[in-house]
């Protein structure tokens, strides 16, 4: 399951904002493109395997998808009381 939202909260001495970035919209937009490109990727994978070229687009695609899915749960909180600044990044 890929991450659905990125919550970004930034505060400085004079600015403050909180942003919810809906990643699921991005995945929905990319899905048709992915479905269209998948046959090409599979063909490329077969061709490269047959000619012995050590480049596997399908493996790369799977590894990238795994990496994106694994980002879910990543949280970075930086609070600077001395500099009166805050950066919170939360991927859910």
């Amino acid at each position: 399951m890929p991450p659905l939202f990125v919550i970004l909260a930034i505060r400085s001495s004079d600015h403050q904002f909180r942003l919810w970035i809906p990643l699921f919209i991005l995945w929905l937009l990319l899905l048709p493109l992915f479905i269209l490109l998948l046959p090409l990727v599979i063909v490329a994978e077969i061709v490269f395997t047959v000619i012995g070229f050590r480049f596997h687009p399908l493996t790369i695609l799977a590894a990238c998808a795994g990496l994106i899915s694994a980002l879910k749960g990543l949280r970075v909180l930086v609070d600077s009381k001395s500099g009166n600044a805050k950066v919170h990044i939360n991927i859910i």
Binding site: A63, A70, V76, D79
Partner: peptide, 19 residues
């Protein structure tokens, strides 16, 4: 100085990275 950093890394990310 009360500056804090708190990072939570999913272990799945390590697995995916190692792949």
């Amino acid at each position: 100085q009360k500056d804090n950093v708190d990072v939570r890394i999913p272990l799945g990310l390590l697995r995916a990275g190692m792949r």
